[in-house]
Amino acid sequence: MVKLTIDGKEVKVPAGTTILAAAKSAGISIPTLCFHGRLDPIGSCRMCVVEIEGCAHPMAACTTPVVEGISVTTNSERLQRIRKDSLKLILVNHPLDCPICDKGGECLLQDLVYEFGIDRVEYQTPKPERSSQYATPLIRYWPDRCIMCLRCVTACREIKGIGAIDIKGAGYGSQVVVIDEDKCQSCGECLQVCPTGALTENLSRYKGRPWLVKRVPTTCTYCGCGCQLELNVEQNRVMAVTTKEGKGVNRGSLCVKGRFGYEFINSEERLTKPLIKKDGEFREASWDDALSLVAEKFKSIKEESGPDAIAGLSSARCTNEENYLFQKFMRAVIGTNNVDHCARL
């Protein structure tokens, strides 16, 4: 264990802990922007700078490990000025997009600017034309809104283990690009961790404000994995799918299907009533009619050709309980062991 003082408070943490984590364990909050709980510290935003006694320069709390006996100050006039200046330098080429940005209201940059009460940006910069290099049909990249925090790049590499994107260029011209197009699966991990509106979902853009939607926690229906997600519902329409960090088996991650495959829910082509084929044509029927027809056919096949003439194929999109009931039904009612399951999608 390493002993140190943070803001006059004695803290004891295991060796190798960062100052940020040590402060958190002591209940001291340090503002962060690029730091994300699921990622290794990036250290690109300089919001978490702290003063360490004996060090001439302030250090980033998220990347600096604790050392025995140091004394850390997390808040001072100088640190506030540095943090404010860091934010101003981010704002210097940020576009005036808040009114049309899908992230508006949930944006970490907005929160910090308001928290620090930044009332003007004294600096100016030439604004280079930047084209959107990284984008898929599902993910939209807004290079002007990007604050180069590197969360997306790190998440792609560390959480997904893909490493499909990286930063290209330097200074104000830098932007996120795809380095290996075949690798990107459009899983959307990058837009999940994006603190601003630089990466947004292409399906739901301009449809509504994040704080107006109702978030309904549910389980993904695509495979047997059972990822936890939240349907963002506005006026009885699903607008987007989000997740909560650290929730469920997926701990906040989703695949391309879970995150973007929600449009079928409100599709007009969706089948909501059973159809029975009569004279070569499908006609709408009631559930009672459809079920009694199926039961009748099962019975006649079983009588004519024996139970093994029937096989059942269940689906991974059903719950475990439903699948259990299905195999029970096949074995006990129909009397066959011909039960299978797609077990994949």
């Binding site: 576009p95 808040c98 508006g104 940059l109 600017v113 308001y114 009460g117 009332d119 940006v121 704080w211």
Partner: peptide, 22 residues
Amino acid sequence: PDLGAVMEDISALIRRFKIQCE
């Protein structure tokens, strides 16, 4: 922040957004 500043300054825009919405 007044609307003139909002049209030009991102920090004013953000603060107006936050003050109005929240």
